[in-house]
Design a protein around this nucleic acid. Sequence first.
RNA 1: GGAGAGAUGGCCGAGUGGUUGAAGGCGCACGCUUGGAAAGCGUGUGUGCGUGCAAACGUACCGCAGGUUCGAAUCCUGUUCUCUCCGCCA
Length: 432
Amino acid sequence: MLDIRYIRDNADAVQLNAQNKGYDVDIKKLLDLDSERRQKLIEVDEFRAKRNENISSANGSRPTEDSIAQGKVIKEKLGEIELQLKTLNSDYMSLLKQVPNMSSPDVPVGKSEDENVVVKTIGSIPKFDFVALNHSEIATKRGWLDKERAAKVTGSRFAYVMGDLVKLQFAVIQFVINTLSDEDKITEIANNAGLKVSSRPFIPVLPPLMIRTEMYDAMDRLEPKDDRYKLEGDDLWLQGSAEHVLGSMHSGEIFDEADLPLRYLGYATSFRREAGTYGKDMEGILRMHQFDKLEMESFTTADDGPNEHLLFVAIQEYLLSQLGLPYQVVKKCTADIGKPNSIGVDMEAWLPGQNKYRETHTADYMTDYQARRLQTKVRRASGDLELIHTNDATAFALGRIMIAIIENGQTSEGKVNVPSVLQPYLSGRTIL
RNA sequence: GGAGAGAUGGCCGAGUGGUUGAAGGCGCACGCUUGGAAAGCGUGUGUGCGUGCAAACGUACCGCAGGUUCGAAUCCUGUUCUCUCCGCCA
């Protein structure tokens, strides 16, 4: 949620920003409601003052008949205008919540993902002297993947992942956890990226996989509801990303500035209904209803927010490079970054099976947009109380990164070369 | 799932209808005291919203949401969470 004071002072910019992001919100109507609501609030406060004066005039003793009679009159009137205020407030809030976060000035303006900008391309695309297969063909042949039985048991877009592919997943997990919880590695990554940021390591977290409606909404991630799984009989949803349960973790809390940045590395199974994607990416495990993901989330001061985002991007590049995967960095345009985003950057790894780059990572910088409703704050050394800034970013989406490893590392025999950094976690095996 | 107890400020904790934003203590900040410190003494110490250039003033907040009342931290209802006992269970 944006600060209403900011909207009042920058109405035109906010309206234009919403338009660029593809959100249909009426800022003028919001501001009209805002002033109407403030007018009503003044009225309500005056009546409350009147009521309080009437109460305190009793001064500890029994009030007079007159005072009680007067109190009744005030009460009736107050109830009336408080109800009006309540209605105004709820209309106002629902409109305010619709206003998307301001995109950073360096986010390209665009109407669809086609206008995203490829910033750089790293690594060379592998050339095979045999017919390259896609991950689904390789994995199915090796007995690593069984979607038919999963369809029988659960439905489409589910899979049984088995055998060495499971071992590969756990190897990736261990590699990432060891890397990101190592302060020296963070220092190295930051230095190589020329970033002056804290070298504080990430705290690995196994978060709950369910989230309350209230928290989901405060994170501004409840929508689109069509893409969420709701649990019948409980006020709970299956989380769609560890971001949702990590970002809301410190709701209502006040950090000491010395405790920031606070960095988490969450490992969680994420659930998505994938509504509206029928027939899209049906082969293999590219687009599933559930997938495991390592996700970074951090809380910083406003000052450190932008650099934290750059650190997250640098970490993503580092991780991809360590696996020897070709990738490109994409600056997402206004239409493609999310509603709570100030900046959105994607990593796309080269997938030989599809002969194109596909999204494997996202890095989101939310400024204080999420914190405002979560009420997550920091007490600065100066004593000032401020909203914190949130950053979240994929470390690895396990399904998609294993696709990249399989397809880029495939051999003519249908085997898979193991990236050297993962070999220690696979008993030294160089090929699967 | 059943029975019971509870949730108050950064922390501990008092408070069952009347000037309670809330006693007392701890902590913290500033000042006095001291060669310096401790102790002691004094003063101060929540957040949101609104009005205002500001000082300030008003208002709301005692888990959350409603209700009763002239008046609610206090009474009533619902709800969330915590704890104890029973049941079930990895």
